[in-house]
Design a protein around this nucleic acid. Sequence first.
DNA 1: CATCTATTCAATAATTATGTTGAATAGTTG
DNA 2: CAACTATTCAACATAATTATTGAATAGATG
Lengths: 227, 227
Amino acid sequence: MSSSSLKEQVYRELSRVTHAISNPKRMELIDVLSQKSFSVEELSREILMSVASTSQHLQVLKAARLVEAERSGNFIMYSISDDSVLHLVFAVKELGFRKIAEIERLISDYKAGKQILESITLDELLVKAKQEKVLLIDVRPEEEYRAGHIPDAVSIPLAQLKKRMAGLPKGKTIVAYCRGPLCVMAADAVKILNEKKFKVLRMEDGYVEWKLKQQYPRNSKRKRGAA
Amino acid sequence: MSSSSLKEQVYRELSRVTHAISNPKRMELIDVLSQKSFSVEELSREILMSVASTSQHLQVLKAARLVEAERSGNFIMYSISDDSVLHLVFAVKELGFRKIAEIERLISDYKAGKQILESITLDELLVKAKQEKVLLIDVRPEEEYRAGHIPDAVSIPLAQLKKRMAGLPKGKTIVAYCRGPLCVMAADAVKILNEKKFKVLRMEDGYVEWKLKQQYPRNSKRKRGAA
DNA sequence: CATCTATTCAATAATTATGTTGAATAGTTG
DNA sequence: CAACTATTCAACATAATTATTGAATAGATG
């Protein structure tokens, strides 16, 4: 009876962690926070939810020690507490993308609608970069680039792309990335550049995926984008 | 609007996976199933829950594609569908053990009560086995041993330990393992053998941890057992 | 120290999860 | 094909989760 009670307690504690990520909005919050820290208000804008609800979700995440809060001036900045949170999210996505047919379908439907023809994985990029000159562009907001980016990537936020397009080379292959497979900024960038006849590919992996890859060199084979 | 709708749909799908593991009993089910496949009835006995409830939990896990079911004679045998499920569970535990002070406290309180003095990690075992002769014993039920075990381990189910104790060497160091850090069988074995003055250590990691280690050689540094 | 404001708390209503019991089902076995 | 049985379904009561609004709070800033 004491042994089963320990077991129960431990599993209850563990389920506090999984419960924290068992809500779509909280998952999205973690995904956004994986890029850099944000204030409650900024986050509420990112995930399209009221400030009070966002705050409540953040408190659930904080209670499970997935994020931590730090005051900075008038704002409270939330951030991911530890790389093990990134591993957890990575494992969830790995499983989600592999196993749940709906997601593959949703994403490829979306891509079909956006006419994203070609995408590339992180592995393929690393190979390609050795063979030919590749220009890697980071289309996330500049603050996220400043908080961390893939080596040799140039920051061209999506919002500025049209303005700065003229400075991009037509000869080189351009590879655009953003927050990762669930983010559409790179897809939008590809669409814009495609229309102007640039040689451009989308990379599904983002900075976080690159960072995790540094630590765990395996896993990274995800399927290519559909028609 | 269509872009935010894709995002929402994808996160909703992902949360189906996390929701599936956000319940203590379901987490326990996955943990048990990580050892080998079981029927619904066996599982209901393992997790101390009615057959109907167990079945319902299993269906949630199946819907999220974490487990799969296969009929074998009169029984339906459930099993883990994919190694990525093990990775997910590993990531959850990694985070739980690292971040949640309560778990550390619970476990070390329990060990104090059981007078478990020494434990060893998988890494330490591998080093030790090179230096001196070590006898590795697997104290799980024999069927689980047959379904997979750490190389060179000998099967001595906890239930048979007292009977077979005479055949064990007093000179060698004995290392006992079971299902992993949340399982108490190895701890019980250590207690029994300690009383008979065997040189015995508990290893917290189990077969699953060993298997994952083959794939991802990092992470495995968990703290030692407390007094 | 009073004002201002980002964040959190409280209360609510709607929705969803949980565990149980007892009946139904599907599939095997004699 | 009839009897049997492991598993699943249905219905229920209880409990927990969710998003919202509006009020309270804590802390910075002038």
